[in-house]
Simulated scan of single mutants.
Amino acid sequence: MSASTLSLLLERAEAERDAAAQALHAASAQADAARHQHGELAGYRQEYQQRWTQQFASGTTMSIVGCYQNFGQRLDQAVDTQGHVARHADQRQDRARDALRQAELRVAALRQLIKRREAEAQRANERREQRAADEFAARAHLRRMAHA
Results as ranks from 00 to 15, higher is better:
residue 1 M to Q: 06
residue 1 M to F: 08
residue 2 S to L: 03
residue 3 A to P: 00
residue 4 S to Q: 11
residue 5 T to G: 07
residue 6 L to V: 03
residue 7 S to A: 13
residue 8 L to T: 06
residue 8 L to M: 12
residue 10 L to T: 01
residue 10 L to N: 00
residue 10 L to K: 01
residue 11 E to Y: 04
residue 15 A to G: 10
residue 15 A to N: 08
residue 15 A to Q: 11
residue 16 E to N: 07
residue 16 E to W: 03
residue 18 D to Y: 00
residue 21 A to L: 03
residue 21 A to I: 00
residue 22 Q to M: 13
residue 24 L to F: 11
residue 25 H to K: 15
residue 26 A to Q: 13
residue 28 S to F: 11
residue 28 S to W: 11
residue 29 A to T: 11
residue 30 Q to F: 06
residue 31 A to E: 03
residue 33 A to P: 01
residue 33 A to E: 09
residue 37 Q to H: 14
residue 40 E to F: 05
residue 41 L to Q: 09
residue 42 A to G: 01
residue 44 Y to N: 09
residue 48 Y to R: 08
residue 55 Q to W: 11
residue 56 F to V: 13
residue 56 F to P: 08
residue 61 T to S: 15
residue 61 T to I: 06
residue 65 V to N: 05
residue 67 C to K: 15
residue 70 N to I: 07
residue 70 N to K: 13
residue 72 G to M: 05
residue 73 Q to I: 07
residue 74 R to K: 14
residue 74 R to Q: 14
residue 75 L to I: 02
residue 78 A to V: 02
residue 79 V to A: 06
residue 79 V to W: 03
residue 82 Q to W: 10
residue 82 Q to S: 02
residue 84 H to Y: 12
residue 87 R to D: 06
residue 87 R to A: 15
residue 87 R to M: 08
residue 88 H to T: 10
residue 91 Q to N: 03
residue 92 R to L: 14
residue 92 R to M: 10
residue 93 Q to G: 10
residue 94 D to R: 11
residue 95 R to L: 11
residue 96 A to M: 07
residue 96 A to Y: 09
residue 97 R to Q: 13
residue 98 D to T: 11
residue 99 A to M: 04
residue 101 R to I: 00
residue 101 R to H: 14
residue 105 L to C: 09
residue 106 R to A: 10
residue 107 V to P: 00
residue 107 V to E: 02
residue 110 L to N: 03
residue 112 Q to G: 09
residue 113 L to K: 00
residue 115 K to C: 13
residue 115 K to V: 10
residue 116 R to N: 07
residue 118 E to R: 15
residue 120 E to F: 06
residue 121 A to H: 05
residue 122 Q to L: 14
residue 123 R to I: 02
residue 124 A to G: 00
residue 126 E to Q: 10
residue 127 R to Y: 11
residue 128 R to I: 04
residue 128 R to K: 05
residue 130 Q to Y: 00
residue 130 Q to E: 12
residue 131 R to W: 04
residue 131 R to I: 03
residue 134 D to G: 02
residue 135 E to P: 00
residue 136 F to S: 13
residue 137 A to H: 07
residue 139 R to V: 01
residue 140 A to T: 08
residue 140 A to S: 09
residue 141 H to N: 08
residue 142 L to C: 01
residue 143 R to V: 04
residue 144 R to Y: 03
residue 146 A to V: 02
residue 146 A to T: 05
residue 148 A to H: 07
